[in-house]
Design a binder for these strands. Sequence first.
DNA 1: ATCATGACTCTGT
DNA 2: AACAGAGCCATGA
Length: 103
Amino acid sequence: MPAITEAQVEAVRAWVVAIPAGRVSTYGDLAAAAGLTNPRQVGWILRTDGADLPWHRVIRASGRPARHLGAEQLARLRAEGVLAIAGRVDLATYRWRPTGQTR
DNA sequence: ATCATGACTCTGT
DNA sequence: AACAGAGCCATGA
């Protein structure tokens, strides 16, 4: 069986979808919310099965977008009302934390 | 089984 | 603040 089950993938997808517009979340938070132990698994899931998700609301713990996404993600966030200062999002303001609403 | 790569994060320098 | 190293887990060759 695969190391990452569909249940885990669905959990991550559900959390990403649950992020409100104008807010962002980090890989680490999503990993914890979905029951994953490693943020890299979240990255893998988004790369593999996240094409149809609002992945632009998922950023790194540094407040910076994922490496290959770069400015495009910041532009998308800015269009939703997330102001990026010097290429980084103010996590203290925009970070959204899973509150257990979907389970 | 081993090695390299990757949408990450932490800690130390 | 910037850079490097290590830890972490999954995948593909």
